[in-house]
Design a protein around this nucleic acid. Structure first.
Lengths: 144, 144
DNA sequence: ATAATTGCAAACACTTTGCACCTGT
DNA sequence: ACAGGTGCAAAGTGTTTGCAATTAT
């Protein structure tokens, strides 16, 4: 039984989407924003195509997905490009409620958080999907 | 100008929904679960009614809302009854990905987390909407 | 040539809204 | 009597699916 690697075609739609995601790696974007961006570039792409490509990137481990902040109205899922080597499953993420900027919390304090939660609250922390919200450095200043 | 308190009628639908929420204060339930529960009790309530009452409780400050864990497929919004005196806006919440159990993290360590995040990452933490996921004490044991 | 990619229209799941009817006070 | 609550049907939103047409290799 031959194991055959599925080939992949290069298309300008995908290239455009990927560019946009990479340019915005430091924050989160929605499927709709991608669509709007592409349209503005006169390279309109169907929403279906966008969702399918996002799904693909996700499976390959190059995309983080964020559901809207709990309690938020009218939110939608947003996405962020990440290198798979980033080990995003091992640290928490801080997301700015204002601008969508995401900080990877990969510092030593992570261990303390995890062990406090385990020792005092009995929980085995799962970083994947756990997001802390707040105002980032930039947005703190500007009176909302 | 008279300020008039809007009156409120007691109905068995609302009483049933509230009972169910209160009985399950330690965890999170969805609108659909409430619907199913009421039907099982032979006290069927329309989904519209459920959503409208949940909205009301939320406005009154007696309900926490949780969007599905980031990245989770097919999740829906879930709700938890809380006394408004609980000050849920001042601590984080730990939610079990398996059983939905929620732990209020109102311990001293909260301050340390907030100050680390502020000092090292520049973020002003916003507890409202920030949820950490993991496996609770009970679910840790049982091989998933 | 042929497998991957795309667009369209329809289906989906969950939630919200408008409106006429019903119910608690 | 009448404000408040409810159910129904329809609309809404964001996302997914089936399928036939198109495109990269």
């Amino acid at each position: 039984m031959e194991k055959r690697v599925k080939q992949e075609y290069k298309t300008s739609s995908r290239a455009g989407i990927l560019d946009y995601l990479k340019q915005n790696r430091q924050r989160t974007v929605s499927a709709g924003e991608i669509h709007t961006h592409m349209k503005a570039q006169n390279r309109q792409v169907n929403m279906t195509t966008i969702y399918r490509y996002l799904e693909k990137l996700e499976v390959e481990g190059n995309l983080m997905q964020y559901t809207p902040q709990s309690g938020e109205k009218n939110g939608c899922v947003t996405y962020q490009y990440v290198d798979s080597k980033h080990k995003c499953g091992e640290h928490l993420h801080l997301k700015c409620v204002q601008c969508g900027f995401v900080e990877h919390m990969d510092c030593d304090f992570m261990k303390e958080i995890a062990s406090h939660i385990s020792a005092e609250h009995g929980f085995a922390l799962e970083c994947k999907g756990s997001v802390l919200y707040g105002l980032c450095k930039n947005c703190r200043g500007q009176g909302r």
